[in-house]
Amino acid sequence: MQQAHPQPDPAALGPPPLHHSEPSDVELIRASVTVPERFAPLFDRHSAAVHRYLARRIGPPADDLLGETFLVAFRRRGDYRSTGVGVRPWLFGIATNLLRHHVRQEERRYRALARIAATEVPPAPVDDAVERIDACALRRDLAAALATLHRGDRDVLLLTAWGDLSYEEIAAVLDIPVGTVRSRLHRARRLTRLALDPALITEESS
């Protein structure tokens, strides 16, 4: 005859564990208005992505700009209004606005990269180069092309390539309509392709 094993007393096991969901970015920023410490997790969640974007665009000064970005965000947290795309585009918007004070420095960086770009790196097809701009191995002609783009067009192109933002998020970052994002991105890609392959100029004019 099989011996029955005693069943554990549920009361002795204690209450079941509670599963708390993490607060959303919007909840954190709203809570931080009265409890400033609640802002800290936003830095933990988004600082790496914002720093990567800044570093690709401007190089070593990204460290200082990252701190400035979150300082501005902290000071303006009470003015934050949800636009339906989350807090991350708001942070990228602050970072992009700060970059505008360093436009000349950014353009000098691209020109310097164009001068020292490694010639041994095999050139990628034009469309691939435009769609996936690699800051670690910018082609000489691609770096030069970025330096000549209008600031607004360059912002849209690099928020797409390096910020990995959607059209709707970029529209929120730059406070422009989605249609303007599309037209700027189209123009930036077209001008960059022409800079990478001058033969396309002849094709377009024919």
Rank of each mutant, 00 (worst) to 15 (best):
H101R: 12
A12K: 13
P61R: 05
H102T: 00
D44E: 15
A129S: 08
D63R: 15
E120C: 02
D153Q: 09
E27Y: 01
P17G: 03
E68T: 04
E27W: 06
E107V: 09
Y80N: 08
S24Y: 08
V130E: 08
H20F: 08
H101D: 03
R45H: 14
V26T: 13
I58Q: 11
Y53L: 05
R190E: 00
T192Y: 07
T69M: 07
P8L: 06
T69D: 03
A135N: 15
T83A: 12
P61S: 15
T69R: 11
A40I: 05
A172M: 15
P23R: 00
A112M: 10
L146S: 05
R184T: 02
H5N: 08
E169K: 06
F74C: 03
S32P: 09
E22V: 02
R81W: 06
A31H: 13
A161T: 12
A118K: 11
A95R: 10
R139N: 13
A137K: 13
V126A: 03
I58W: 12
G78I: 00
R57N: 14
V72N: 03
H150K: 09
P89Y: 04
L98V: 04
L200Y: 04
R81T: 02
R111I: 04
I176D: 10
D79Y: 02
R38A: 13
A143R: 14
D64Q: 14
Q7S: 11
T192S: 15
I133Q: 11
D63F: 09
P125M: 01
R57C: 11
P16L: 05
P17F: 02
R75N: 05
